[in-house]
Design a protein around this nucleic acid. Sequence first.
DNA 1: TGAATAGTGTCTGTGAGACACTATTGT
DNA 2: ACAATAGTGTCTCACAGACACTATTCA
Lengths: 242, 242
Amino acid sequence: MNDDCWVPPTVLLAVDLVILTLRESQLQVLLIERGVAPYRGSLALPGGFLNHDQEDLLTAAHRELDEEAGLGPEELHLEQLGVYGTPGRDPRGRVVSVAYLAVTPRLPEPVAGTDAADAKWTPVAHALSDAAPLAFDHRQILADGVDRAREKLERSALATAFCGPTFTIVELQEVYEAVWGVRLDPRNFYRKVQSVDGFIVPAGPTRRTDGGRPARLFKPGPHTTLHPPMTRPQGPTGKEKT
Amino acid sequence: MNDDCWVPPTVLLAVDLVILTLRESQLQVLLIERGVAPYRGSLALPGGFLNHDQEDLLTAAHRELDEEAGLGPEELHLEQLGVYGTPGRDPRGRVVSVAYLAVTPRLPEPVAGTDAADAKWTPVAHALSDAAPLAFDHRQILADGVDRAREKLERSALATAFCGPTFTIVELQEVYEAVWGVRLDPRNFYRKVQSVDGFIVPAGPTRRTDGGRPARLFKPGPHTTLHPPMTRPQGPTGKEKT
DNA sequence: TGAATAGTGTCTGTGAGACACTATTGT
DNA sequence: ACAATAGTGTCTCACAGACACTATTCA
C-alpha cells in the first residue's frame, strides 16, 4: 500500500478562537474584519497560523488571543473545541485548524489599539444568521462553540467566567438566560444556584442597583464541576436530534 | 512581527483511534503492538498518518479503523475526541494527532488476518495502569476517550452502540456498569431505561438465558439524545475536580 | 407611600432509589 | 419443587417548578 519512498503529507496548522462574552444581556462573539485575501472584507474568527515549528497549540491560542483581542492569559477560560480540517476549507491549501473556546467577563470597548483594531463584538444570533456570512467554515465553528458553552453551563462553573470577580445572582442568571436562550424564574434560580455545592460563595456585602433592594455579592466557589448540575429547560434552543 | 518572507510552518498530521468494546463484562480497548520505531514493541492505539494531501480527517480515521481493526464504516459510532499536538510528543518531529472515539458491539476474536494482526483487545483498566505503558501520549488519549464515553452514556444513546442489533435490558445495564464502574439496581434500571423517550424499542420476542425467565429483546430507538438523561451515581469513578 | 428589586416559604408533581413481590423459564 | 433470572408495585425522599409572600432600597 505504501511506496518505499512514501512520506506522509504535511499540512498547515492554524488556531481559531471563539471568544464569547455577555454584553447588553446578549451573548456576543469577537469577530475581526479580514484585511487580506482570502475572504478579504468578510468577518472571521480571530486566529492564525502557528508562529514556528515548535509552538504549542495552547500557547498559540493564547498568543492569538493576546494579539487580536488584547486579552492576556490571566484567569481566562480557554478550552479546545475541535479540529476542522476538511480539504478545501481554505483556498490557500490544506489548512487544519484547531478551534478553542474562550469566555471572558470583561467588557472592554471594541478592544483597544491592538494588532487587529477592527475586532468587533457581534451578537451571536446575528453572526450565525445568513445576514453576516463568516469566512471559511467559521460559522460552523462558532455554532459548535456556542453549543459547547451551552452544555458546559449545565455541569461546570463556566457561567462565572462570564462575570467579573464578584457578581450578583441575578447577573449569573442573565448569563444562563442569554446562553441558553430561555427565561428562568428568579426565585427558583436564586435558591438552586446556592444549593449547588461549591459553585458560588458570598463575597463582600451588597451592591446597589437602580432602586430596589441591594443584592448580595458572590464570587466563584472552589468547585468547577457542579453537583447536582444546573438543569436546562428543554426548549427549542438546544438542537434536538430525532 | 513577521518577516516579509515568513511562511507558516507545516506539521505532520496523524489520526489515532480509541476503539472501545465490551468483552467479558469489561470495558476493553483495541491496542496494537508497534512493529517499528519509535516505541517499537510497545502497545499503542491504532492510527497513522494521512495517506495523502487531500484526505479528509474522518475518512482517514475510517480507513485506519478498517486497516487495523478490520471494521468497516457501517453503523460504527465515530466521533472526534480532540487534538494532541504538544511539541515533542513524537520523536520523529512535529506530529499533530487527531483522536477519534469509536464504539463497536462486535466481539470479533482479536481481529482476523488484517494489516496489523497483532491487534489485541485489552481491558481499559489494565491499559491505563502503570503495568502497560502505552506509546507516545496514548495513555492520555485513552483516558480522555473513556471519559468522553462515560459522559456520553448519560445524555446519548451511545450505550446501544456497545450492543448488537438487538439486546436485552440486562445487557444494556452491563454496558453502563462496565463503563461507569458502578453497580445499578436491575429493577430500577429496567423501568428507567424504558421510560426514556425513544431510547430503546421492543424487537422480536424473547431470548433464552442460562435458566431463568427469557428476557425481552430491544433495539435502538429513534432518538440519539436522551430526555431525561440517565443519571450516573456520583462515585469515585468520575474524576472530581476540587 | 409606592415602585422596584432582593430574597423566603411552601405546595405539588416527577423521578431516583430501595426493596418486597410476581412471572416464567430450566433442571 | 427449586433455583435462577425477568419483570411489577409501591413507598420514600429529593428536587424542579409555580407562585404567594416578606424585606430593603430609592424617588
